[in-house]
Design a binder for these strands. Structure first.
Lengths: 275, 275
DNA sequence: GTTGACTTTCCCGTAAGGGGAGACCCCACC
DNA sequence: GGTGGGGTCTCCCCTTACGGGAAAGTCAAC
């Protein structure tokens, strides 16, 4: 029952490596039932094998250790179910993303990077009022975070009575990539008809008139890459020079477009035209 | 066409971070079109944006950089297709595994670690001849690697005429876990009717008679954990002591069992019984 | 010429451990 | 009561694919 077994034996029982067990002990995930204060030896009980098995399974699902700790600490079954559902949703989203990316990749390679051609035009944007929200987002939840951000701005604009004057825009002020929760800052904005006063985290700003080179990408957002390249290349080839971070304008969204294949995203690079 | 652009601009075109681009350059994945020998500045061309997009997509699929390098280096479309199919298969296997593990986990938590009860018995195994193959395997391909290993042994035994004398067994001499390609050594063996001479990597060995505590697990292999705990605990509670690494005996396999739910796996712990 | 933005290399940190060194510790055997 | 061999301890470095930040050098515009 409360037989104490050393780490090597416990390792064989649980099929977790000694290193991993020590790691879990240090992380507070699975602390030994007793640690000999004289020798530092860790001793476990058979009853702990169940927790170890749960850890094994969750690790095989690539759940981070701190979330596993949450699960183990939660005696509440609902909490467990919630964490698990969240993780399952993550896994399913990932598979869908992967399937789409594999298809895109095939086109990308077969058509040698020119799956679409883009018409690039220069236009002058008038000065405008903006309702702006800056958010730090992680790579794996850009979508929901951005959607929520736009909803927040929209609500603030609605309450302010400033009135909408165009589709939402996004500027990536930092890159958001990398797997391990790569963070980055994005700047979300709605143009407004009258100056926006600023409500909560949503700030009112002015954007001066400017010249941009722009093109429109039709299709899933994940495939927007070549549009960036097309605009930038066009700018360089026409002797202009880009002067800032590019902006994305979402001309339609999931509400208006029947499917991701019909999403319209405008890519704008601010430029200066030499005399 | 061959306009050279510095890394920051290329970063905006490709939406890859400067750090990532430098990393890819160092890894030989995407070397700058020109590096100024005086300043060390990296300069890219727009034509490289396509490779960058491929890298972006493959990284979003969590493909390791060295495999991406293979894909980019392979002008051959078949190679690309093969790598992609392999990766797709990996992803699909993973989702299936994840689905099964989530279900198992639910049972594990609801039933508090006792999803099954196990009858543990002691039996004396006679000395036997073995055809043994040692393999280093990584965590994410244990299944196929083990199957291939057994096939290798079976072929060798068949050619030797030593004759099969029982189901295949596996000993994990090292733990195989961890996500990052955790390696471990496994020892695969078939008992043979007469001494096996050793053919290629398959060695002939003798196993002396020994006493084991054993139980049989019915169900998917991934759920074998509690059986280990049950045997070990039984051994300890009966005053015996385990003397070595446990062994798994595959009483049936995918050929004989209609579904994973019917797989039979025997877990044997060698023991000594005190006088 | 000077400023300010850009880029370089270098070093450290991440998650979840693996590999190995050097030092203890435990226990069975004599 | 030794003693040998295997188990275990801590400590440090290594992995992947970068991110953060420092200190120094570079570029281009004014």
């Amino acid at each position: 029952m409360d037989t104490l077994i050393p780490i090597g034996r416990f390792s064989r029982v649980t099929r977790l490596s000694v290193k991993a067990l020590r790691n879990y002990a240090d992380a507070g995930l699975l602390e030994p039932a007793w640690v000999d204060p004289a020798s530092g030896y860790r001793y476990y009980t058979y009853a702990q094998a169940t927790s170890a098995e749960v850890i094994r399974v969750l690790r095989s699902l690539e759940m981070p250790l701190d979330e596993i700790a949450e699960v183990l600490a939660a005696a509440d079954d609902d909490v467990v179910a919630k964490v698990m559902d969240r993780h399952r949703a993550r896994l399913e989203d990932r598979l869908e993303h992967e399937t789409r990316m594999l298809a895109y990749l095939r086109r990308l390679i077969e058509e040698e990077g020119r799956p679409m051609t883009y018409d690039v035009t220069v236009k002058e944007l008038p000065a405008t009022h903006l309702a702006v929200l800056r958010r730090r987002v992680t790579a794996d939840d850009v979508g929901p975070a951005v959607a929520e951000g736009f909803a927040t701005i929209a609500a603030a604009v609605g309450r302010s009575g400033a009135g909408f004057a165009g589709p939402p825009t996004l500027v990536m002020t930092e890159m958001v990539d990398a797997d391990g929760g790569g963070e980055g800052e994005v700047e979300l904005a709605f143009p407004t008809a009258t100056p926006f006063p600023g409500i909560g985290e949503v700030a009112g700003e002015e954007r001066p008139a400017e010249l941009v080179a722009s093109t429109v990408h039709r299709g899933p957002y994940e495939e927007v890459g070549p549009a960036y390249a097309a605009v930038e290349q066009w700018v360089a080839e026409h002797g202009h020079s880009a002067t800032g971070a590019p902006r994305e304008v979402y001309l339609n969204g999931p509400q208006e477009a029947p499917s991701p294949a019909d999403y319209l995203t405008e890519i704008q690079f601010p430029i200066v035209v030499p005399d």
